[in-house]
Nucleic acid binder design. Structure first.
Length: 575
RNA sequence: GCGCCUGUAGCUCAGCUGGAUAGAGCAACUGCCUUCUAAGCAGUAGGCCACAAGUUCGAAUCUUGUCAGGCGCACCA
């Protein structure tokens, strides 16, 4: 089977209408269970073997892992689901992986893992081999993720921070899931907005030189940052009157644009987000890629002339309206460079292309999808992730932002005031496509409103316990060899199961491109640990128990560190 | 008017693509610091999953309709 055919068959369309990645589950726990089930089905002569679905039940009494398989088979086999389930259980027989397998409810088969199996799982974590925590669902396939891509006409604000946090975490997640990820920032450095930036800075500069008659152009940019740049420009250019206004304006534009881009890079860097490539819109024009892409589509018959303009026939695909590419005045629309940019992405040979946009651009999805179609690209390999607007509040009151009025909270303000870790984590505690209230006062209060501390605290606490053990002369470097059989408390086994479910959770997060699942998992795991910590001492006089509990704590720490790292959040040793 | 998204505890949100008894954090109330970090723990309370039909063994989840909120509907960028 070819790669693309295989990929195609495993893809589905989610309920929002966007394609998502869907791969066969390969996690250890799942794999072991599925193999057991498949063998049993074979014994029973049930073929073709149906897709075996596995889930982690919400309620502990339903076992560690569960399948509704028999219920699905009931129709095909024309037998009661419970009966089928019982036959399957009988066919599985004795097995050292499971302590108990039972039929429950309308026909669920619930599996409980044996303690030996669980201990083996902890040992795997203690090897510190991250590949044992992941499934290679990407298999080296190349994915391009474009995110942030804010106009270089002002500093990044809180809304961009959300896109940056989500994009960054998603890239990490996909990379850890076996994809080769390229992070890209598309710079809109062509057209009206940069011109306005230049004019705005130039006007400010001229006023600084005593030419009060220069006004910020209509729709121009205002705010302190414009004056700051103008002052810097003045420091470079001096205060002599600029004789050739055109030249001065162009110089101001270049200067301001350069400053802005540098600032954006710097802010993203201090936020902990780095890009592999920065793609320039202006360059697409200079290299003739815009004209080339349009010619290409013309050749395919997807362009036509009407009313003196050139139109793209996006209604041939998923759009409800054709779109102008070249205006009556012979200039290009913004859409034209978007076509070229997406062709450029395709030409670079990615297996998967992900665009992360602000939700206010959702109306653009059909036309870009149409472009992908027109270029002959399998559109299931293109996905747009929408990041909803951040509803900025200050002390419970809406805080209106406007870049042009210069009234906004920048990313660097937030990173400095709130901290990059907290900001990222909060943005990742919600689905990307859901509205989010971000109250500056609440978040800066550094109270229990900040879930990130809760999780980081668990990590720091474990580190502190390990320090303590070392101070008492316990050698924790060989903790992986510890006999874990003394871990027999329900709480301990619950924690172990939570740890072993980690790869399943990660796989789901990667498959659906939903990094927010990781933050929920983290809070649950940290919660289990904090409760355990308060009820039971790790370091006691019982040497065997101490070592086993240190091993458990170490395993928890491995998972906390691993998942926080994927989110782009630090895991401090001390707090 | 058309399209997209959202509607789950007082508030902010999860709910793993149709599974079993609906989940967490805040806020409220009650307890817990000579003991590995109290940025913590234990407990109480809080629900007609917006509403109404439908699909089937089974619906917060899928379909349709209604209501409410947000966003988008350029030869702007």
């Amino acid at each position: 089977m070819s790669l693309s055919a295989e990929r195609h068959s495993s893809e589905r369309v989610d309920r929002t209408g966007y394609r998502c990645l869907n791969f066969q589950p390969e996690d250890i726990m799942k794999k072991d269970t599925i193999h057991t089930l498949q063998a049993a089905l074979k014994t029973l002569g049930i073929s073709p073997c149906p897709q075996v679905e596995i889930e982690v039940p919400k309620v502990g009494s339903f076992g560690d892992i569960s399948t509704p398989l028999a219920m699905g088979l009931a129709r095909v086999q024309k037998k009661a689901p419970k009966k089928i389930a019982e036959e399957i259980v009988a066919a599985i027989g004795d097995n050292d992986t499971f302590e108990k397998i039972e039929v429950a409810g309308p026909g669920f088969i619930n599996f409980s893992f044996s303690r030996e199996y669980l201990y083996r799982g902890v040992k795997r974590i203690l090897t510190h081999d991250p590949t044992l925590l992941r499934e290679d669902i990407g298999q080296g396939r190349r994915v391009l993720v474009e995110f942030v891509s804010a106009n270089p006409t002002g500093p990044l604000h809180v809304g961009h921070a959300r896109g940056a946090a989500v994009g960054n975490a998603l890239c990490n997640l996909l990379r850890e899931s076996g994809f080769t990820v390229e992070r890209e920032y598309y710079i809109n450095d062509f057209g009206r907005q940069v011109l306005l930036l230049g004019e705005s800075v130039f006007a400010s500069y001229m006023r600084l030189n005593g030419h009060e008659e220069y006004q910020v152009p209509e729709d121009g940019y205002q705010g302190e940052y414009i004056d700051d740049i103008a002052r810097e420009f003045r420091a470079q250019e001096g205060d002599g009157p600029t004789t050739a206004e055109e030249e001065g304006m162009a110089a101001a534009r270049e200067f301001a644009y350069g400053k802005m881009l540098a600032l954006i890079r710097k802010d993203l860097g201090s936020f902990g987000v780095q890009f592999d490539s920065w793609r320039s819109e202006a360059e697409l024009y200079e290299k003739g890629e815009v004209a080339g892409a349009i010619d290409f589509l013309k050749g395919k018959g997807f362009m036509y002339d009407k009313d003196g303009a050139l139109w793209f026939k996006s209604t041939d695909f998923t759009d409800d309206k054709d779109r102008v590419v070249i205006k009556k005045d012979a200039t290009y629309t913004y859409f034209a460079s978007d076509i070229a940019y997406h062709k450029d992405k395709l030409d670079r040979g990615f297996d998967l292309i992900i665009d992360i946009w602000g939700a206010d651009h959702h109306g653009y999805i059909p036309r870009i999808e149409s472009v992908m179609h027109a270029f002959g690209y399998d559109s299931t390999r293109f996905r747009v992730i929408l990041v909803q607007m951040v509803n900025l509040l200050k002390n419970g009151e809406p805080f209106k932002m406007s870049k042009r009025a210069g009234n906004f909270v920048t990313l660097s303000d937030v990173a400095e005031l709130v901290g990059a870790d907290t900001t990222k984590f909060i943005f990742l505690t919600r689905k990307a496509d859901s509205h989010l209230d971000f109250d500056i006062d609440v978040v800066t209060a550094q109270s229990s409103e900040n879930p990130v501390f809760y999780v980081q605290y668990a990590h720091a606490r474990i580190n502190s316990i390990l320090e303590n053990a070392r101070a008492k002369g316990i050698d924790v470097s060989t903790i992986g060899d510890t006999d874990l059989a003394v871990l027999e408390l329900d709480e301990e086994l619950t924690i172990v199961k939570k740890l072993l479910v980690y790869p399943i959770m990660l796989e789901g997060a990667a498959r659906t491109c939903e990094p927010h699942r990781i933050t929920y998992y983290l809070q649950e795991l940290a919660g289990l640990f904090h409760g355990y910590y308060h009820r039971h001492k790790v370091i006691t006089d019982d040497r065997a128990l101490t070592l086993a509990r240190l091993a458990l704590c170490t395993a928890i720490r491995v998972i906390l560190l691993d998942s926080l790292t994927i989110l782009g959040v630090t895991a401090p040793d001390k707090m």
